[in-house]
Design a protein around this nucleic acid. Structure first.
Length: 722
DNA sequence: TACTATTTAATTTTT
DNA sequence: TTAAATAGTA
C-alpha cells in the first residue's frame, strides 16, 4: 500500500492525528492549521490503509458546503467516488434517518420540513388562535424558547414551570406548537435533531444496527455542537465506534444559538483515554497577524490553550486607521482597495469584515461611487425568497393537504376573495375541531360561509386538487413548471410594475430549472418532489444568485468564519459596536466577542487593516465612540497607525482624546471628554463613554463603577471632573 | 383590498 | 436612519 499521497503533505501533528489508532481523538485545530485536511486525510487513511469500508464511516459537518467540500476532497484523494460514505450536516443526517425510519420515529411518512421563517409564521398564527397577546408574548421570543428547549433535548413534559406563570405560559405555547406541527406533519430544524435522538434512544435494535455499521465517527467544528447534537453523537458512538472530533475552542462564536464549547471538555470525560492533538502551525497568515491574534485571544480565560505559529515571514505591520466618521472610514477602505487593485491584485482577494450587517451600507456607497464591484454575503437566500416559498407552498399542499403553514401562506395569494374574515372562520373551525385548515375549509365552505366566500374557498380547494391531479404523472421539472403557472403566481407578478416583478418571475423560472437539475439521492428512496422539497428546506441555496466573478467581498465576521483572504479590513472597531453593546457587560458575552475578533484577525493572509470611526451615526444619531478594547490588546509593535494624529501621547489606548472635536461641540468647554473620569453625587465614580447634543440639552453617557452606564443631562448632573 | 401614515425598535445565522 | 410591522384610509 502506497500511503505517500495521504501522508506526504502533512506535518507531524497532522500526521499523528491522521494515523492514530482506533481510539477517541480530539483535535484542537487552530485557525488555518489544516483542520479540514486532517479530517479528509483521516477518512482516506481509514478507508485506504485500515481497510474500513466507506459505509463504516460517518462524517458530520455544520454546513452543506462543508459536507460537499469534504466529500469532494476525499474522492480526489482516493481517486474514487465514495457514495456509501455518509457525509452530511447533523440536520441532513437526522433527516435521512427519519425518512428511513419514520414509523419508529412516530412521524407520518410524508412529513415536511419547515424552516425558521415558516416556524415563526406558525407561531404567530398560533398566538392569534389562542388569543394570546403578541406584544406580551413576542413570537420571536417564543420561537427562541421552543428551539432552545429542543436544542437541550427537552419536550414540554420535561419542563417544570417553577411556579412562574410566564414560564408556564411559554411551556403551554410550546405544547400547543407541537400539537400544530404534529397535526400538519411538520418538522422544524430543531425537531429533526430531537426526533433523531429519540429514535436512537428508544429503539435499541435500530441503534445497535447503526452502532455496528458506523465504526468511525468524524466530526467537524466540534466546538459548535449543541446539547442534542452531542447527545445524539454520544448515543451513536456507544462504546464501540471511534469518535474523531476536530474543533477550535477559540473559534466558538455561536453560543447564542445553542453551541456549547464545553463539549470539548465533556468529550474527554465521556470518552476516557481520549488522545488530544493540537494543530498550531498555521499555513495562512503572516507572523505579525498570528501574533496579534494570539495576543488578543490570550485575554480570554478558560481556554484549552494554543499558540499559532508560522514558518513564514512576519509580513507587514497591521495598519490602524482612526477615521473621523463612518464615511471617512469607507473612503479610507476604498482608497486602499484602489491601491490593491491597481497593483494588479484580484478584487476577490480582498474582504471587508464588520460586526453587524447595518455597517455595510456606508461601505457599499463608497464602493459604488468608486465603481468597485463588490458582493455582500448574507441576506435572503434563494429558497428563502417570498415568491419561491409561495411556489413551494403550492407544491407542498399538493403533497400534503394538512400542511397548515403552506395553506395559510397561499390561501389568498394571489388574491382570490378569501379575506381575513373568511380565514378567521376557518381557523375557528379548525381550532374547535382540532383539525387542519384544509378540512376546516371544506366544512366551513359548505355550511358557515356566505355564498360568495364559500365559492371562493371551494374554488381554491378545487385548484389545489386540480394541480395535484394534473401533475400526478409529470416529472419533477414539469410539475414545478405547471404549478408555478397554474397557481397564478406568474400572472400575479406580471402585474407588479417595475423590476421587482420581473426578478420574481425570473426567480420562479430559476426554481423550475433548479427542479430540472435536481438529482435526488438514490439512497434516499423518496418521491422526487418530496426529496426536492426537503432539499429546499435543508439547503437554502446561495445568498446572491449571480455575482460578478471578481469582486470585493463584504460580510460579517460571523460569516467569514472558515474563509481566508489575502487582504482583510476589520471595520467599525469601536466599543459598543465591537464588542457589541449587548455583550459588553457580560463576561461570557465579552469573551465570545473576543473570539469573534480572533476569527476576524485570522482571516487575513498577508495584510490586515483595522479601522474605527471616532464619530459614528447610529440609528440616526451621531455618537462619539471609543476605540474597541480589542485594538488595545494587539501588541503595539505589530501596529502601525496610518495618519497618526498630532499631539497624542498614547494613540492606541486613548485615541481621540487629543483631537479637537467638531467645532460647535459644547462639551469641550464643559471640560468633558471621552474617557474623562467624573464623580456624581449619587452614582459615584465613572468614566465618560459618549456625549451628544449642545447647550442645555447636552447629555453625557457615563459608565459608573457601581451602577452601570447612565445618560445624564450635563446641566443638571453636577459632575465633578477628576 | 391596496395604498399610505405611523409606530417601533435596532447583533451575530445555519439548518 | 431606516426597515418592517401595524393601523388607518380611500
Amino acid at each position: 500500500m502506497d500511503v505517500t499521497p495521504i501522508l506526504d503533505t502533512l506535518n507531524d501533528a497532522q500526521r499523528e492525528a491522521v494515523t492514530a489508532p482506533a481510539e477517541p481523538m480530539l483535535v484542537i485545530a487552530g485557525a488555518g492549521s489544516g483542520k479540514t485536511r486532517v479530517l479528509v486525510h483521516r477518512a482516506a487513511w481509514l478507508i485506504d490503509v485500515e481497510g474500513v469500508p466507506p459505509q463504516g464511516l460517518l462524517a458530520v459537518t455544520f454546513t452543506n458546503k462543508a459536507a460537499a467540500e469534504m466529500r469532494g476532497r476525499i474522492e480526489t484523494l482516493l481517486k474514487l467516488p465514495v457514495n456509501p460514505l455518509w457525509i452530511g450536516t447533523f440536520h441532513g443526517l437526522a433527516h435521512r434517518l427519519l425518512r428511513r425510519h419514520w414509523r419508529e420515529a412516530g412521524l407520518p411518512q410524508g412529513f415536511q420540513i419547515i424552516d425558521a421563517d415558516d416556524q415563526l409564521r406558525l407561531i404567530k398564527r398560533l398566538l392569534k388562535n389562542l388569543e394570546v397577546d403578541d406584544s406580551r408574548w413576542v413570537p420571536r421570543e417564543i420561537q427562541y424558547f421552543i428551539n432552545g428547549q429542543k436544542d437541550e433535548g427537552l419536550r414540554p413534559e420535561h419542563l417544570d414551570d417553577e411556579r412562574d406563570p410566564d414560564r408556564r405560559q411559554m411551556i403551554e405555547l410550546y405544547k400547543a406548537y407541537e400539537a400544530v406541527c404534529e397535526r400538519g406533519g411538520l418538522v422544524d430544524f430543531a425537531e429533526l435533531l430531537l426526533a433523531a435522538h429519540e429514535l436512537f434512544r428508544d429503539n435499541a435494535e435500530l441503534l445497535g444496527h447503526y452502532r455496528r455499521r458506523f465504526q468511525h465517527l468524524l466530526v467537524d467544528e466540534f466546538q459548535d455542537t449543541n446539547a442534542i447534537q452531542y447527545a445524539w453523537l454520544r448515543l451513536l458512538a456507544g462504546d464501540q465506534s471511534v469518535p474523531f472530533v476536530v474543533g477550535d475552542d477559540d473559534q466558538s462564536i455561536y453560543r447564542w444559538r445553542g453551541a456549547r464549547v464545553e463539549h470539548i471538555h465533556q468529550f474527554q470525560r465521556d470518552f476516557p483515554g481520549t488522545r488530544v492533538v493540537k494543530l498550531e502551525q498555521n499555513y495562512r497568515s503572516t507572523g505579525t497577524i498570528l501574533n496579534a491574534a494570539n495576543a488578543v485571544i490570550a485575554n480570554n480565560g478558560s481556554r484549552m490553550g494554543k499558540n499559532l505559529w508560522t514558518e513564514g515571514v512576519d509580513g507587514e505591520p497591521i495598519r490602524l486607521y482612526a477615521a473621523y466618521n463612518e464615511r471617512d472610514e469607507a473612503d479610507f477602505v476604498v482608497a486602499r482597495l484602489r491601491d490593491w487593485i491597481d497593483q494588479g491584485n484580484l478584487r476577490a482577494d480582498a474582504a471587508i469584515l464588520y460586526r453587524s450587517n447595518a455597517q455595510s451600507r456606508v461601505l457599499e456607497e463608497g464602493l459604488i461611487n468608486a465603481r468597485i464591484p463588490y458582493r455582500v454575503y448574507g441576506g435572503l437566500r434563494f429558497f428563502e425568497r417570498a415568491e419561491i416559498k409561495d411556489a413551494l407552498a403550492y407544491l407542498r399542499l399538493t403533497v400534503n393537504r394538512d400542511d397548515d403553514a403552506s395553506f395559510e401562506r397561499i390561501v389568498n395569494r394571489p388574491t382570490r376573495g378569501i379575506g381575513a374574515r373568511t380565514v378567521e372562520a376557518m381557523r375557528a373551525y379548525a381550532r374547535a375541531n382540532a383539525c387542519s385548515m384544509w378540512r376546516a375549509a371544506g366544512a366551513v365552505a359548505s355550511d358557515t360561509l356566505s355564498g360568495r366566500a364559500a365559492s371562493s374557498v371551494s374554488a381554491f380547494m378545487q385548484l389545489i386538487e386540480k394541480l395535484a391531479h394534473e401533475t400526478e404523472t409529470l416529472d419533477l421539472e414539469d410539475k414545478v413548471d405547471h404549478v408555478v403557472h397554474a397557481s397564478g403566481l406568474i400572472d400575479l407578478f406580471k402585474k407588479d410594475k417595475g423590476e421587482r416583478g420581473e426578478t420574481r418571475i425570473e426567480n420562479l423560472m430559476e426554481l423550475v430549472s433548479a427542479a430540472k437539475g435536481f438529482e435526488p439521492d438514490p439512497a434516499e428512496d423518496m418521491a422526487p418532489l418530496d426529496a426536492f422539497l426537503a432539499h429546499a428546506a435543508l439547503e437554502a441555496g446561495e445568498g446572491q444568485a449571480n455575482a460578478w466573478d471578481d469582486c470585493v467581498q463584504l460580510m460579517t465576521m460571523h460569516s467569514a468564519k472558515g474563509l481566508e483572504f489575502p487582504l482583510v479590513f476589520l471595520c467599525g472597531m469601536e466599543d459598543g459596536l465591537f464588542p457589541h453593546q449587548r455583550s459588553i457587560n457580560d463576561p461570557n458575552g465579552l469573551e465570545e466577542e473576543r473570539r469573534l475578533c480572533y476569527v476576524g484577525i485570522t482571516r487575513a493572509m498577508q495584510a490586515l487593516y483595522v479601522t474605527y470611526a471616532e464619530q459614528r451615526r447610529l440609528h440616526g444619531m451621531d455618537n462619539f465612540s471609543v476605540p474597541s478594547r480589542f485594538i488595545a490588546e494587539i501588541p503595539e509593535e505589530h501596529v502601525e497607525e496610518v495618519r497618526p494624529k498630532v499631539s497624542v501621547s498614547r494613540p492606541l489606548r486613548n485615541a481621540g482624546a487629543g483631537r479637537p472635536r467638531s467645532p460647535s461641540n459644547g462639551m469641550a468647554e464643559a471640560g468633558v471628554r471621552l474617557g474623562q473620569r467624573v464623580r456624581h453625587g449619587k452614582f459615584g465614580d465613572g468614566v465618560v463613554l459618549n456625549y451628544e447634543g449642545q447647550g442645555a440639552h447636552a447629555r453625557v453617557e457615563v459608565n459608573f463603577e457601581n451602577v452601570g452606564t447612565k445618560w445624564l443631562v450635563l446641566s443638571y448632573a453636577n459632575l465633578d471632573l477628576m
